[in-house]
């Protein structure tokens, strides 16, 4: 039941020399690669959050630009998309009641960002919008586009706020560090309530504020252990599970009387 504290995932560097043989005379465009040493991570029951380390490399970096620190990398670990209902409580006769609600399609359950520098220092707000990059720029698609823009905006903001408050949307400024001219290491936060499913790791490369390239990899997050088996049984064999829960209760009641009997 001990929580693993960190998962180190390493990559196999696609070394530039080997990867790009002949075209040396043309100025190369930069590229970015990330790779995960494993394509699935199992978290146990007592999981209390962890840092996930992703290694990556730049391809054909311009040494001058690299020395001046004008390369920036943003790494995102995006959870599986799910529909979400956002509800707002309002006061009715003094009692707080869920009144208005807005449903959004395909909202990533989690969204952890790691960056080399604060987001606003890397590039323009507009290019974040175009890339739909960063928790505040993610496009949340309302299920009913007919609702008034003000309402949609309000509930979108609330959705982001709730997600960050529960740690599912997080930002780790300085979480991407260059270890050498080509090699970088990104640390993204996995919340204790990180959802299971297929997560997508994406790395974005910027050069002097311009978006250059993106690379992605998939990561399966699974829960393992006794508790997860119970969860699976409860969902897949719910009738048997119910019968088991009842039998357990009856047995406990009967044993309890045998053991602790006081009359």
């Amino acid at each position: 039941m001990r929580a693993p504290n960190a998962f180190a995932t390493a990559i196999f560097l696609s070394l530039l020399a080997a990867a790009v043989p002949a075209k040396a005379q043309v100025p190369m465009t930069e590229g970015i690669q990330i790779g995960l040493s494993t394509d699935n991570v199992s978290i146990t029951a007592g999981f209390s959050g962890a840092d996930l380390t992703i290694f990556g490399s730049l391809e054909n970096p311009d040494p001058l630009v690299a020395r001046q620190g004008r390369y920036d990398v943003i790494v995102v670990l995006e959870g599986p998309p799910k529909p979400v209902v956002v509800r707002r409580k309002d006061r009715v006769l003094g009692v707080w009641i869920n009144l208005d609600s807005e449903t959004f399609e395909n909202v990533p359950v989690s969204y952890s960002v790691a960056t080399t520098r604060p987001l606003q220092d890397i590039t323009e707000p507009n290019s974040y919008k175009q890339l739909s990059l960063g928790a505040s720029n993610l496009y949340m698609q309302p299920a009913d586009p007919g609702d008034s823009p003000a309402t949609i905006e309000e509930f979108t903001a609330a959705l982001r706020e709730r997600k960050s408050a529960t740690g599912l949307y997080s930002e780790n400024v300085g979480g991407v560090q260059f270890l050498s001219q080509n090699l970088f290491r990104a640390t993204v936060r996995l919340a204790p309530n990180v959802p299971v499913g297929t997560h997508k790791a994406r790395a974005f490369l910027f050069k002097s504020g311009l978006f250059i390239k993106e690379s992605s990899a998939q990561l399966e997050i699974r829960k393992s252990g006794f508790e997860q088996s119970i969860f699976r049984v409860a969902h897949n064999y719910s009738f048997l599970y119910g019968v088991f829960a009842i039998s357990l209760a009856m047995l406990t009641g009967w044993l309890g009387r045998l053991i602790f009997r006081r009359d």
Partner: peptide
Amino acid sequence: FVTPPNLYSLSAA
């Protein structure tokens, strides 16, 4: 009756 700390709540649709 107490004002909840969070007026907004999320749930799976």
